[in-house]
């Protein structure tokens, strides 16, 4: 499946891949907050934040072109509103919308493409995200591709029979609901029999080493320095 690409990227090896998920989450959140509170988006701002992202992408040793291609997903939405701003004479806001939305999406994707989803979520949980929500997201991500594959097959089968009308689509969704619900019950029973107590246990332990601390610290210092010295 197409979206597995990000999942495959997240299992590679590099300096950024090896860092603790918590360090990456802290660095990501700082980057997003600093970018969102930039007073005015000037070419210097775009270069500064873009340079940081480029450095991170090089550290992660990920292919740049596909990363950029995936970031372009935000363009239809951001581009429409940027165009509207530009037409109404507010070109500063147009630049701000384009730069902020695309850079933020790129930063999020870098974090997700360098950290396997289960580790990222476990890191978020250690940072204080509610356990219930994190557990639900863990299960969602685990079965997302399984169920999507099933839906894809159903759609293919429907196309072979002459396409989906609204009523048939309702039926297909109902069948999918039923099989998902039963699958969930089966999964739950199987997990209970293996000793599941309502919490997912991660294999391996997290170690927040000095390199991880350094990554978060350097990000914060660079961002704060840029803000204080050059109002970036």
């Amino acid at each position: 499946m197409q979206h597995l690409t990000v999942d495959q990227w997240s299992r590679r090896e590099s300096f950024l891949h090896a860092r603790d998920p918590r360090a990456k989450l802290v660095a990501l959140l700082c980057f997003l907050v600093w970018l969102a509170t930039v007073p005015a988006v000037t070419p210097e701002v775009a270069c500064g934040y873009g340079g940081l992202l480029l450095a991170a992408a090089l550290m992660a040793r990920l292919p740049l072109a596909p990363l950029l291609q995936r970031t372009a997903i935000v363009m239809p939405f951001a581009g429409t509103f940027a165009l509207l701003s530009w037409l109404s004479g507010d070109s500063a806001r147009a630049a701000s919308l384009l730069v902020k939305s695309s850079f933020s999406a790129f930063a999020v994707m870098l974090a997700v493409a360098t950290t396997p989803m289960p580790a990222l979520l476990a890191g978020a949980e250690r940072l204080g995200a509610p356990t219930m929500v994190v557990t639900v997201v863990q299960f969602l991500y685990r079965y997302l591709f399984v169920l999507s594959e099933k839906a894809r097959n159903m759609r293919l089968a429907a196309a072979c029979r002459g396409g989906l009308r609204r009523k048939a689509a309702g039926g297909a969704i109902t069948v999918l609901f039923g099989s998902s619900y039963e699958r969930a019950e089966g999964i739950h029973r199987a997990m209970l029999s293996r000793g599941y107590t309502g919490r997912l246990v991660m294999h391996g332990t997290f170690r927040f080493g000095w390199m991880d601390g350094l990554l978060a610290l350097v990000t914060v210092i660079v961002l704060t320095g840029g803000r204080l010295l050059w109002r970036l």
Binding site: L147, S148, L176, F177, E185
Partner: peptide, 20 residues
């Protein structure tokens, strides 16, 4: 929680079934 997670995945999958 497994039920809720799998039903979330169901919603994702159901969104792939689009109709005219």
């Amino acid at each position: 929680a497994p039920l809720l997670g799998v039903m979330g995945a169901f919603v994702f999958a159901a969104q792939m079934i689009n109709f005219p």
